[in-house]
Design a protein around this nucleic acid. Structure first.
Lengths: 297, 297
DNA sequence: TTGAACTATGCATTATATTCATAGTATGGT
DNA sequence: ACCATACTATGAATATAATGCATAGTTCAA
């Protein structure tokens, strides 16, 4: 009934007061415009213009639609520009899911330069998933999954973005502090503090303690890194964290890193996306920037 | 490019999640809808939906347009309703021009019942015109002219809406008070107070004094009726007003009416409209109500 | 009164939207 | 694993609507 072209016609016609001139700017013939407005008036059952001698003047109904069009058309124009941005991959919403606690610290380093480079991309970070990060990615709840445990599935694409060593963190005066590396048995009498996740997703268990059949004296879970490090600092326990994260916190806390095993635990953070999205430049750019982040160690 | 039907499709498709069902409510075939959305996506250069197995899910660009459509469509729907109102003559803007000072008092009596009867008609009252009321009417600055001096022109239509007698107003103790009617010579020593308009538009001049070649002792002009009546009340002058207006004010002011000449001055207020507008029911209704107004005397 | 500049209109043409018929694809039950 | 079902996609044919052409009608100013 009432189409966008009609609103444009009403505006242009009011500006030019002349069918012929308005037709020109609208890239139509005068005839087409005449036919169009006649049909519109017939459909609406209302005169929108009075033929005032040689020119046209809006009626009250026409004036009403003029005010409508000056409200509507800018919104539509803006929307088309935004869609253009989406089309070029310059606008969007990057929903990032995290499956590891210290990933958040790392993510912060990536996000701020990224936001500057992509002003029309908004970032959401989600840390909890009902069905786990993988499902969230497949179900379009998130667009990018940061995880230390990639799983290769047909429609998903994982790639490592940075490597780090998972080490033991002890207080400055802890007896293990000066060891070149520790053995699983060294933890027999320690209190181990970790984030509250299942033991099979903690590398210190899966790659270090469990293979040796060792269980620490006690296991406590704490949600936040700062509190964990305060506990470690005051010799209330030891923890396992990425080396780079420990180095960043060594000025603030009296703590020290110790290698876990002779060769250390080597970890790789992966970023997963849907294969369908791999061409999106704002996603590819995020991964590029993620790989470029400089971390201590 | 982006059409209203597209916004409707986006909404309906998001509601139903299914091309087939959405096509039904949109009164289209499934095929037509499929073609349409494919073309839209091609034109915009962006995917708006992901074909998620059997159903469709909006992409981020699609979600953006969904939010757009939920802002735009209600505005358009409302506009179409309003246009419908305009078409039925139930909405509009009645701009009334006044060419006589006491007309305003009379107008107030018409307006309030009219506004109740026509809730979507707004009334503007304009009392001053650069080029006079007639031109204002012809140039669509006003839609209805209230005037005691109709001029018959081809494109305009005047009709009398009420008759009244123009009388002299004097203070309660004025010597002329008890005369059955006065002669022009009776005003020789009086101070005549009028609204500030040219003498040829004052009936007391054109129909009473000038034919007799009489000029009053003094002539003062005052803009507001209340102040004029206060002056008359305190015997600072006399004035000429419609009888009905005087009767309305006799409780408030100590004043009295006296007939001007043996047969009085008979006046007719006319309402003028453009001939083109005579079918508009909200205008015709205004005139009907104007004629029905009850006035004293 | 006339010519220039505009608007309106019938008809032919072109472009666009829609449908039909059918192939392709995912889903859930057996 | 297969099949029936319910959906979407697509090419070609068709219907519908928009546009342009040619021209007539109107207005205005010189």
């Amino acid at each position: 009934m009432l189409e966008i072209i009609h609103l444009e016609i009403i505006q242009e016609l009011d500006k030019q007061k002349s069918l012929t001139k308005a037709a020109e700017t609208l890239c139509l013939s005068q005839s087409a415009l005449s036919h169009t407005i006649k049909k519109l008036e017939q459909q609406l059952g209302v005169a929108l213009w009075v033929r005032d001698g040689r020119y046209l003047r809006l009626t009250q109904a026409g004036l009403y639609l003029l005010s409508l069009s000056s409200r509507i058309l800018p919104q539509l124009n803006h929307a088309e520009m935004m869609i253009q941005q989406y089309a070029e991959g310059k606008a969007g919403n990057l929903r990032i899911g995290l499956e590891c606690y210290p990933c958040y610290q790392w993510l912060l380093k990536v996000v701020s330069p990224y936001l500057e480079a992509w002003p029309n991309i908004d970032i959401d970070v989600k840390q909890k998933f009902k069905f786990g990060g993988l499902d969230a990615l497949e179900n379009y709840e998130i667009d990018l999954l940061v995880t230390p445990d990639p799983i290769f599935k047909e429609d998903l694409l994982f790639q490592p973005v940075f490597d780090y060593e998972q080490i033991l963190v002890v207080g400055k005066n802890h007896p293990l502090k000066d060891k070149k590396y520790i053995q699983p048995t060294d933890l027999l009498n320690e209190i181990l503090i970790t984030y509250p996740v299942p033991a099979d997703r903690l590398d210190i268990y899966s790659q270090f303690l469990i293979p040796a059949g060792i269980v620490p004296h006690q296991h406590k879970t704490i949600e936040t890194t700062d509190i964990i490090l305060q506990m470690v600092e005051s010799h209330r326990g030891v923890t396992a964290l990425p080396l780079w994260l420990v180095k960043e916190n060594m000025k603030q806390f009296k703590i020290a890193p110790v290698r876990l095993g002779k060769h250390g635990i080597s970890k790789h953070i992966h970023v997963g996306i849907r294969k369908k999205d791999q061409e999106l430049s704002y996603i590819q750019s995020f991964i590029d920037q993620a790989m470029a982040v400089e971390l201590y160690g």
